[in-house]
């Protein structure tokens, strides 16, 4: 398996890619916060936020529809919010009698539901844009600058690095199982449920042992290469004038969006 499967970074030369990662992290968090602050049903403000997102998409050189295409990951969860439609507040729009339960969709409930969906959809897109335009080590470095404990960022850095290695390990274990599971055509394979569980548990245990022993070897080789407890970078971050400008303009837009949302 190749690294590309997990790495969501897409390189194209663009202004957004060149921005300081700290600015991008701040912008992302502020955008999500702004969406959460907007009152329900402030459609003009949501539309403005979407416009801002489209501009950011365009500036990143990845194409206007880039984040839209990948934003479906958030869709399944909207199922959870469906029950908000039947909020007893607001005036009823219809009565659906399903036999065992009577559902009454209301206007306020519908507004609430669509506001939640739009908020989540906008927030997911900016997060997609963040990881698509920032290399993961840079992202972690930015989080470290933003006062995330170094222990945690180092753990995440290792997690990211060994994700690919251990995923390969998983595929090797799965292949080994396949190779030992001969089947006859037309005969249902696999043992009883308890046997399957035991096999899966042994696979998890085996994966654990291989990971543990590998981490031991990794540590030894890191020590011999001068590891002192944290990872150093060759990519120092400096805030330039353009970074400040982008941050300022973006915050200005968010203030306008909030204003539109609360006034209308």
């Amino acid at each position: 398996m190749h690294v590309d499967v997990f790495d969501q970074y897409h390189f194209t030369p663009s202004r957004v890619h060149d921005l300081d990662p700290r600015v991008k992290v701040l912008i992302t968090v502020l955008f999500i916060l702004s969406n959460a602050l907007l009152p329900d049903g402030s459609w003009p403000a949501f539309a403005l936020a979407w416009l801002l997102l489209l501009v950011a998409n365009d500036q990143s050189g990845l194409g206007l529809g880039f984040t839209f295409k990948r934003s479906v990951v958030a869709l399944p969860f909207t199922l959870v919010a469906v029950s908000a439609i039947f909020s007893p507040q607001g005036s009823p729009l219809a009565v659906w009698d399903l036999g065992f339960i009577t559902l009454i969709p209301t206007d306020l409930g519908l507004i609430r539901f669509f506001s939640i969906v739009v908020r989540s959809w906008l927030s997911v897109q900016i997060a997609i844009l963040l990881v698509a335009t920032t290399q993961f080590p840079d992202l972690l470095h930015a989080l470290e600058h933003l006062r995330l404990p170094r222990t945690l960022t180092t753990i995440i850095a290792f997690l990211f690095r060994y994700l690919f290695v251990l995923t390969n390990e998983v595929f090797r274990i799965l292949r080994a199982r396949e190779a030992r599971s001969a089947g006859l055509p037309g005969v249902k394979g696999g043992g009883k449920l308890s046997w399957q569980i035991k096999t899966t548990g042994s696979m998890v245990g085996q994966l654990f042992l291989r990971s543990y022993e590998r981490s031991d070897r990794i540590y030894q080789s890191m020590i011999s290469r001068g590891y002192i407890g944290h990872i150093r970078t060759l990519n120092p971050h400096y805030m330039e004038r353009q970074d400040w400008l982008y941050l300022f303009v973006f915050i200005l837009f968010l203030v306008i969006i909030q204003f539109v949302g609360w006034v209308s």
Binding site: L159, Y212, S215
Partner: peptide
Amino acid sequence: EKQIPIMGVMAAFIFAAQML
């Protein structure tokens, strides 16, 4: 400091084990 690489690899293990 030895624990930090181990925790990182263990986190990767949890992530990978979720695929089984």
